[in-house]
């Protein structure tokens, strides 16, 4: 967190909504992405990300400045997403179900139509693979690959031990590798490998 963000945080703690808005702008990407990867549904992801920010805002007094703000915020997001998954398990898309096109990917005009299609297929494949994992494994994978977090940081976000994280990532990787040996998944994966 840079100095400017420290100032916004301090103002937000004093009830300045605009200052908190600056923090939302700064961290909306990580929070939304975590929610999207966890929930596999952009509508739910937006709601969850918004709820995570609201919870953070109402709990700013309990935030320990010694902790990294992003870690604290992602911890709130992941806890909320896991609660949501447990409550709405039935609404989660399974591996067999077709995944909706992600409009943001489809609207990437910088790429040509072929690249867009490939991006869309990659996104669908990744989400379908993630959906095969239990939520704790999924969260570990997301934090490791999209946030480039160390085992220690992931353990802090998930409020567990480093050895538990190593074990989850090990099992998650093997489970994902196992899923790719399925004929159809292997076929879908092939165009995305060099």
């Amino acid at each position: 967190m840079n100095d400017e963000e420290q100032v916004w945080l301090e103002r937000a703690r004093n009830g300045d909504r605009a200052a908190f808005g600056r923090l939302v702008e700064a961290y909306q990407g990580p929070v939304y992405n975590l929610a999207y990867r966890m929930l596999n549904n952009r509508g739910e992801a937006e709601e969850a990300a918004q709820e995570a920010f609201i919870r953070a805002y109402t709990r700013l007094d309990s935030y320990d400045p010694q902790r990294k703000f992003s870690t604290w915020l992602l911890s709130i997001t992941s806890n909320y997403c896991i609660d949501l998954i447990r409550k709405r398990r039935v609404t989660l898309l399974s591996l067999e179900e077709p995944l909706p096109a992600h409009p943001a990917l489809m609207s990437d005009h910088a790429d040509g139509p072929e690249a867009q299609t490939l991006n869309h297929e990659r996104e669908a494949l990744v989400q379908s693979l993630l959906a095969t994992l239990p939520e704790e494994y999924r969260e570990t994978v997301v934090l490791r690959y999209w946030y480039d977090m160390s085992y220690e940081e992931i353990a802090e976000v998930m409020d567990t031990t480093v050895s538990a994280i190593k074990s989850r990532l090990f099992r998650a990787r093997r489970q994902l590798a196992e899923a790719t040996t399925d004929g159809e998944v292997a076929e879908r994966l092939q165009p995305h490998l060099n």
Partner: peptide, 30 residues
């Protein structure tokens, strides 16, 4: 298979945030 998954995950970019998300969130703050 592990390496293939590794490559797939590492090369998948983050998804963009929906437009106007920050503004909607600030409006919803209690």
């Amino acid at each position: 298979a592990l390496q293939a998954v590794e490559q797939l995950l590492r090369e998948t970019p983050p998804v963009p945030v929906p437009a106007g998300f920050a503004q909607r969130t600030v409006r919803a703050l209690p």
